[in-house]
Write a protein that binds this DNA or RNA. Structure first.
Length: 549
DNA sequence: GACTTCGGCGCC
DNA sequence: AAATGGCGCCGAAGTC
């Protein structure tokens, strides 16, 4: 059973039970308190909740202490359906979908609220202007269900995306356990004591001074342009100041610059200011953007949650009596390719724990690369569209020995180059080429045109793999969440593409590991059915994130 | 002063 | 001859 929800003013709202196809099963029922009504109906019926946006509605429910098992997120699913139809990025609000349904002018999506305030107070809002109408919600849901039913795999995608939205709201609420003391100690050790005002920490200022001395002139090490000029004056012509370019230069300022860059990065991106802004009450609470990346990967708003530097993982510390279960999918993307392509020889290799090692015997080692290195390089090139240097020859080996796998990504690349759409296993669809791209590639056969064509080929080549990996990861998390609910206290606190962290009472950690493995297997079965390909999770039970791997 | 773009680098 | 996918965030520099 499903229940549609419309948020009303003053914490109230309206509920209406629906059949799976969206047909109303009863009258609309006004309720004075959505929090109380949802909690009660969840206990009684465990329905799939149909609402406009989990990021708004469920977030407010979670803040009020309510949890639900399943939902249908109308905005996220509208995005998926639009994308499937090749109308990527059209407005996705219920109002917009309702307008399209009736052939009326489609309103633009409202920009997301700037601060957390309006969301936290969603249910306290007395403003009747913000109240939702149940009619459009019911109608848009029915239309979405009609469209989903015609698309193989899409019901799974819709359920997984919606589950992801529930998980994202819950993870933001729970937060990643973060030790301010450990973080501060690390910064102090690497940068010197916390400076006052906007000053550079001591270690950075020392390096900046030494860099000036080494060049014999004042240089702001934060300015690539100034570094290029200073190097030119010293007789070194460089186009950029990237680390790998600087490393080739024999000048006393270079080691200082490299150290400065590394420490400066830590200070500006994850220094004390970050700590003040993003960590409260021992928790880092990033805001996840489900479906924020075209491939179905998540993005985050603020805090750079998906780019936590490795050195800072020692600041992620479980609570007393609790542990972190850190689990990541080993070699996920090549395994996904093996399963997608149905290449028998490749899939047999992917039935092994170390896929690259299993492929190694078809490559011959050289002085600088082992056979396993070569296998890895060949596969990454096939998926990312590389093919320079050594990779050319390695790709040739791949093509000969695993023709179906090679052809699969080649077909995706060619579709992209022609301007066609490609899709993930469950139906998530890449954006169509821009009008600019079409114009550029239709008129000429000059270098710019050829370059644009190849660029889109690389994008679609990678999309089919990356997006299917995202399908898999989302499915894994949805299953894992259900299992964790049964266990009780253990809960997800972090997700990064192919890696999850569960915060759990230590006595339950082993059961969490088992739950993760079972969920990974289920995700593989659900996406690919019978396949020899395995999707192993490497799990570690640790106190600190940095102790995993 | 507010805004955008660029260069660079962190993560997968 | 050259050709590697996806992001977010920072300070500097340029623009209005």
């Amino acid at each position: 059973m499903r229940i549609a929800v419309a948020v009303g003013p003053g914490g109230g709202g309206t509920l209406r039970p629906l059949a799976d196809d969206g047909t109303p099963l009863g009258d609309a029922e006004p309720v004075p308190s959505l929090v109380a009504a949802v909690a009660e109906r969840e206990r009684a019926d465990r329905p799939r909740w149909v609402w406009s946006s989990s990021a708004r509605v469920y977030r407010a429910l979670v803040e009020a202490g309510v949890r639900v098992g399943r939902c249908h997120d109308l905005e996220l699913i509208e995005s998926l359906l639009s994308g499937h139809d090749g109308r990527y990025g059209e407005p996705r609000s219920v109002a917009a979908a309702w307008a399209r349904l009736r052939g009326e002018p489609v309103p633009d999506d409202r920009p997301p609220p700037a601060e957390a305030g309006p969301q936290a107070s969603l249910f306290d809002d007395e403003d009747a202007d913000d109240a939702e109408d149940l009619g459009p919600i019911v109608a848009v849901h029915a239309e979405q269900q009609r469209r989903i039913a015609a698309l193989p795999g899409f019901a799974t995608l819709a359920a997984a995306e919606s589950a992801g939205a529930l998980i994202a709201a819950e993870m933001t609420h729970a937060g990643l356990p973060w030790s301010v003391a450990a973080h501060d100690a690390l910064l102090t050790e690497m940068l010197g004591p916390r400076p006052s005002g906007g000053l550079r920490p001591r270690r950075l200022q020392d390096l900046a001074d030494k860099i000036g001395t080494a060049f014999g002139r004042h240089v702001n090490p934060d300015s690539p342009a100034q570094i290029v000029k200073a190097l030119a004056a010293a007789g070194y012509q460089v186009k950029t100041t990237r680390a790998h370019v600087l490393k080739e230069i024999d000048h006393p300022a270079v080691p200082l610059l490299l150290e400065y860059k590394e420490l400066s990065r830590l200070h500006t991106a994850h220094g004390w200011a970050w700590l003040d802004t993003w960590v409260h009450d021992g928790r880092f609470r990033p805001e996840y953007v489900v479906g924020g990346v075209v491939s179905g990967r998540w993005a985050t708003n603020g805090g750079g949650a998906l780019q936590i530097p490795r050195v800072l993982r020692s600041a992620v510390v479980a609570d007393e009596g609790w542990s972190l279960v850190v689990a990541d999918a080993a070699q996920l993307e090549p395994r996904v390719l093996a399963a997608l392509a149905g290449d028998r020889a490749f899939a047999d290799a992917a039935a092994q724990g170390d896929l690259y090692a299993a492929l190694a015997d078809v490559f011959t080692p050289s002085a600088d690369l082992t056979a396993r290195d070569k296998a890895k390089l060949a596969l990454l090139s096939a998926m990312y569209g590389g093919g320079t240097g050594d990779a050319v020859q390695l790709l040739g080996v791949l093509k000969k020995r695993f023709p179906d796998a090679f052809d699969f990504v080649e077909a995706a690349a060619q579709a992209g180059e022609r301007g066609h759409l490609v899709r993930s296993r469950l139906g998530r669809t890449c954006p169509p080429p821009s009008g600019e791209w079409r114009e550029l590639t239709s008129t000429g056969d000059d270098t710019r045109s050829a370059s644009a064509v190849r660029s889109r080929g690389r994008f679609t080549r990678n999309f089919v793999v990356q997006a299917t990996a995202a399908d898999w990861a989302l499915t894994l998390m949805a299953r894992l969440r259900q299992r964790l609910t049964v266990l009780g206290d253990p809960h997800l606190v972090f997700f990064q593409h192919d890696e999850v962290i569960v915060h759990t009472p230590t006595p339950l950690a082993d059961e969490v590991v088992t739950a993760i493995e079972a969920s990974a297997k289920e995700a593989g079965d659900l996406l690919f059915g019978r396949t020899p390909v395995v999707f192993p999770m490497e799990s570690a039970i640790v106190q600190r994130y940095s102790d995993a791997k």
